[in-house]
Amino acid sequence: MATNTTTQSQTAKAPFPPFQGETFPSQLFWLVICFVALYVLLSRVALPRLSHAIENRQSRIAGDLETASRLRNESEAAQASYEKALADARAKAQALASESQAKAAAEAEAQRKQLEDGLKAKLEAAEKQIASTKSAAMSNVRGIAVDTAGLIVERLTGKTPAKQSVERAVDAALH
């Protein structure tokens, strides 16, 4: 403010400062020099450096994000494969267990059947023996009965009956 008072007497007479034509050449001269210098320095030196710094950071951030997502994918894949291995192992174990169970059951069944067959055969043989023994015994009984009946008739009547008629009578009685 203090410096302004010295020029006040001049400005009172002079026109409004922004319209003082005699100052225009100097103003424009310096504007051209300064603005051209500013433009050249900014476009050639300063702005490329600035954009370089910004791009560096952006590419670094993008790279970091990419690495992070890649690592995440890898860990997810690892977990998936681990889970798959676990499921496989479980399925395998289950299959093995059921297989051995089926095998054991089949073996037991076979053994049982074999045993059953053996017993059945023995039973049949025994039954056959019983039947043959029975028929043999029955034929012995007929002979004894015919002889006995002939002797009884002879003792009672004193006559020897015909063997044929005795046999017929015994058969009729036995059956």
Partner: peptide, 22 residues
């Protein structure tokens, strides 16, 4: 007439501040 003026000084200062600052 071409003169170094108060206006010119501030324009030069602005260029220095902007470029130097960056």
């Amino acid at each position: 007439e071409i003169a170094l003026t108060n206006s010119a000084v501030f324009m030069i200062a602005a260029v220095v501040v902007i470029v130097g600052g960056i």
